[in-house]
Design a protein around this nucleic acid. Structure first.
Lengths: 346, 346
DNA sequence: GTCTATCGTGGAAGCGCATTCCTTCGATGA
DNA sequence: TCATCGAAGGAATGCGCTTCCACGATAGAC
């Protein structure tokens, strides 16, 4: 079986072995509009099989003028938020004969632009920008510019999070979710709130804080800016932010961390401080990261269907051809009350 | 600035605008061995910039006969084990001008072969197979075969986990780690052990069980096969496996789950059963998943430097050219005792 | 002063494939 | 029987780039 020339097998090798022309081999293997006689087709397929032929995707891309590569750019693939989205994308991509190229900005949003350029070089069919938008005009401007170029090249861009760019977007209803959460927490009897906010420029974090404040406002409760502590959007960021709040923790009865990983950090900080959740303090997060569902006490949070977010983004990619103008898909979160907040109104 | 032709800008456009030949433009932009006069070089660079030129990677790959794509194949990118490895790979790739294409087998090992074929089509420089090897001859045989073809095409393959394939491998010392863990647990006074094992065919799971049994054996303790419960390598798998053990849980004083996510599932099952860890039962995991470090009680486990694993794999990819035969890097785990096991020997 | 190295540049081939155009052949209808 | 047409196969082109080769100019050796 399968003696194989050194180096890659080309379509020419297949054609030669099958005793047909290049054109016929191509048509037989990649089903064109043209028909190929059954006998020849069989011969070609057999030859390809026996030579372990795999079409050179670069050459195909070149000849066809398009590729089957889709880029996925995240801030940190180790963050369960992003890895869940990535899983959703991968699953949706399954069977669509698409290769997903992963970009990781390592939490430096300006690197999104670099990936966009690299993926344009690859002639990627589309790019999914999964990270939060930033309130940073120079970076946003550069990104916007590069997106124009990318699209002018025939590529499609899909963003996840905020509708800040003129592209297909999966909008995550951060504000709404945080507002609902605030309402529920007030319903549980909490009145004096602290917030562990993320980086100020990160819109996802900011939207959640705004939404939360809004929700409190509807119940006539003010959020004292002194009780809003900023920190990185990570476990350690939550830990640190919580520590800065801890001096005046006596004045609070509930803390909202803008995401679950921060909430977990906060829980540790609280525990180290001798505070027991929820007895001494209520604590809530956002995202409902599945890996974190079993922390004890279980986190009250806002559930986001992250895999579905990824899948939606991929669907936008697939159906990009037919669209005329940017589309928006909205994904809502759902408040989940668990043990990290008290259950009885007081 | 930057008026731009419809569609992609080609090197020819750049050359034309700079008033030089294609060859010169190519040399100026992609630094060859040949030198280009300073004035011309400047003209070319300026033209490229003003046209937003991004070299067509497909065409370059074609002309050069190689690409800068590296494939990373994992079982489930949402699993923190794999996402940590992926993060390590991404970070190591940083600055090396390499694009990482992600494959996710969705826990169907036979799909590794499919990805290998697809990545061969892409003429990937290398592929990192991050998942555990399986004890499944047909699949292993197909994989081995496809690896041969891949390497014959000039690609490099790096495996992570077991040295089962004749390729560069980052070996994870599962057996050793589990053995050490067993020793430590015995040192804490535990005597009657249960094990939550993963799928029987998965070598990573199996190695950990073997190593654990070995460690117990050294202390003269037998592991009763009746106390080894198999389950999926996931949180739910741990939960279920623990439940099957729960009937006879009175005969046990410590349970070892072959990874942390299973341990977390087990912890929930135990709690639902009214058992308190570590008071009623010791519990240990494996991996030291960072997202899980804050579960309460904190898990005794074997710490694996997963990001380093990913980085090592990537280094093997980079230095593949110089090697003559498959290399092996060994990564050891380190036992970390925490609150899920008792601290005082009894 | 001529004759060879050297250097910077342009011309052109070729990477592997899809596809257009052309040729051939058999079938069909008059 | 012959013209016509459709279908199937093959030759040739081009996708965008790198790189080998050729060429003229300049410099250094004699």
């Amino acid at each position: 079986m399968a003696e194989q020339p050194r180096g890659s097998v080309t379509l020419m090798d297949v054609a030669a072995r099958a005793g047909v022309s290049l054109a016929t081999a191509s048509r037989a293997l990649n089903g064109s509009t043209r028909k190929v006689g059954d006998d020849l087709r069989e011969r070609v397929l057999a030859a390809a099989r026996s030579l372990n032929y795999a079409a050179n995707a670069q050459a195909q891309a070149m000849a066809r003028g398009r590729t089957n590569v889709v880029g996925l750019v995240v801030h940190d693939i180790a963050d369960p938020y992003f890895s869940s989205i990535a899983a959703g994308v991968m699953e949706a991509a399954e069977g669509h004969h698409v290769l997903v190229t992963l970009g990781s900005t390592l939490r430096r949003p300006e690197r999104e632009v670099d990936y966009l350029v690299a993926l344009r070089g690859q002639r990627s069919r589309a790019v999914i920008l999964a990270g939060s938008r930033m309130d940073d005009s120079p970076v946003a401007e550069a990104l916007r510019r590069e997106i124009d170029i990318f699209e002018n090249d025939g590529g499609n861009v899909v963003a996840i999070s905020q509708k800040q760019l003129p592209v297909d977007t999966v909008v995550i209803e951060n504000r709404l979710g945080a507002r609902d959460l605030a309402t529920e927490l007030v319903g549980l009897g909490y009145r004096r709130f602290g917030v562990l906010a993320g980086p100020d420029a990160m819109l996802t974090a900011r939207d959640r804080v705004h939404g939360f404040r809004e929700g409190l406002g509807r119940s006539g409760i003010d959020l004292d800016p002194a009780f809003v502590a900023h920190g990185a959007f990570t476990r350690d960021g939550g830990y640190q932010a919580m520590n800065t709040l801890l001096d005046r923790i006596g004045e609070l009865d509930c803390v909202f961390a803008v995401n679950d990983v921060m909430a977990v950090g906060a829980m540790v900080a609280a525990r180290e401080h001798g505070l027991e959740v929820p007895r001494d303090l209520g604590l809530a997060g956002f995202d409902d990261i599945s890996t974190l569902r079993d922390v004890n006490p279980a986190l009250t949070t806002v559930r986001l269907p992250l895999e579905k977010v990824g899948a939606s983004a991929f669907e936008l990619v697939l159906s990009a051809a037919e669209r005329t103008k940017p589309r928006t898909r909205r994904i809502k979160g759902e408040v989940v009350l668990r043990q990290s907040t008290r259950t009885i109104s007081g």
